[in-house]
Nucleic acid binder design. Structure first.
Lengths: 230, 230
DNA sequence: TTTACAAAGTGTCCTAAAAACACTTTAAAG
DNA sequence: CTTTAAAGTGTTTTTAGGACACTTTGTAAA
């Protein structure tokens, strides 16, 4: 008989806010709910936490189920716990947001789940408190991208400077002067310019860069705080 | 029979990181644990969430139990969920941090709970993962104080400019030039200078100020982001 | 093959905020 | 009344960020 026997046990859900980036647009992966209540409505990918796993593990498991991906950037956002948030039964939900390279996800899997990528400015009405979760994740992403080099999680390993700029313009929802942008990014000294240019039918082919995580880590002790000073 | 019947139910704990400020020092309220395991060790104030309340409500209830206070600043920090974090039984814990005016708390209550205020730089070894929670709360407080006028929660309604400065020096753990500090705070236009000076045995009595929440709210739409620009 | 076009790439000046810096005023205590 | 310790007050310098326009490149169409 446990010391804690007298206390309530709660259902603990996980909901995943999955961000991607494609064609200069920030995107969100949503699934069409296949069961009642709210069957047919759009929803975040979710699931329930098991007793034998941490919530980070549960979130990773649930994200993998839909995208086929492992080792992606994923972070706890917040716990949503209004008593009546789920009409079926009282649950609390831990929202996790993740940043994935949209090229990597498993297209077959997302078809199975009736999932679809949405532009961030065209998010439909979602079930329960999921719109609130998305809004909070959107804010967190802005904060995180200001202070940490997480933007690269949304891009392929090799990317062009204009791509990177358009990503930050999408995240911050405001245009950036390209000369100022390049100056600031270059000053951070965390990119490696490759001896390669972008492929395809570009009018003028842009140089490719990659993010150098080691260079970034070396700077951690200097107080450098990515795009802003501490 | 619920749709969700097959899923695990978890024990959900709440732990409170309670900050105060006194004599130029940031402080933390800890209790001496009165039961096994880890009886006699220092710990955050905690409790368990009930099925019929949101976690915010649970956290407020638990904070009130120890301090006698209601309506204090309190915010969810993060969920800690390592499977073996509590040796008694698997629990997940939601850490909440709160900022209180140290003069307001109920001294009788904290005696009953064997609670004590500690200087932030003299926090003892705590049970479970509580030291980790405190460290995260400390970081969050720095962030929050940079972007929002929460510092005033730690002060009495009327305070002097040197008090306010020493609070920010404690939060940011770095000295601030008083002329620069006054200029920045004054520029925010959220303080009201009172026609009153501090009481007591001060060498030169300083003017009292109060925080004007209305003035701050009027600025919210201007993009002003407290001590930093967005 | 030449020309038009659209995107990549590149430097300088200006403005505003933050940092550095020192003396005067006040009131309690001896 | 003299000492002392903290409150209160402006100016200059430095730095970061923002504004701004032309040249280069490579594809595609004439």
């Amino acid at each position: 008989m446990s010391l804690y026997a007298q206390y309530d046990r709660l259902l603990v859900a996980i909901d995943c806010i999955i961000f991607g980036f494609e064609q200069d647009k920030l995107k969100l992966l949503l699934i069409k709910r296949g069961f009642e209540p709210e069957k047919g409505k759009w929803s975040l990918m979710g699931g329930f936490a098991n007793n034998n796993e941490s919530l980070d593990e549960a979130a990773t498991r649930i994200l993998g189920t839909l995208t086929g991906l492992k080792d992606v950037f994923m972070e706890q956002l917040s716990c949503f716990s209004q008593v009546d948030r789920d009409p079926v039964e009282r649950t609390i939900s831990l929202a996790y947001y993740s940043l994935i390279n949209i090229e990597d996800h498993d297209e077959e899997l997302i078809k199975q789940y009736d999932a679809q990528w949405f532009d961030m400015d065209q998010i439909p009405d979602l079930i329960f408190d999921h719109n609130e979760m998305v809004a909070m994740a959107r804010e967190r992403l802005k904060y995180k991208a200001t202070h940490y080099p997480v933007g690269f999680e949304l891009l392929p390993p090799k990317f062009t400077m204009p791509q990177l700029q358009s990503l930050y313009e999408a995240i911050f929802e405001s245009p950036i002067d390209k000369r100022n942008f390049i100056r600031r990014i270059t000053a951070l000294d965390i990119l490696v310019k490759l001896n390669e240019k972008q492929k395809g039918k570009a009018i003028k082919k842009a140089f490719l860069y990659r993010f150098d995580a080691d260079k970034y880590k070396q700077q951690l002790h200097t107080g450098n705080n990515f795009l802003v000073k501490p």
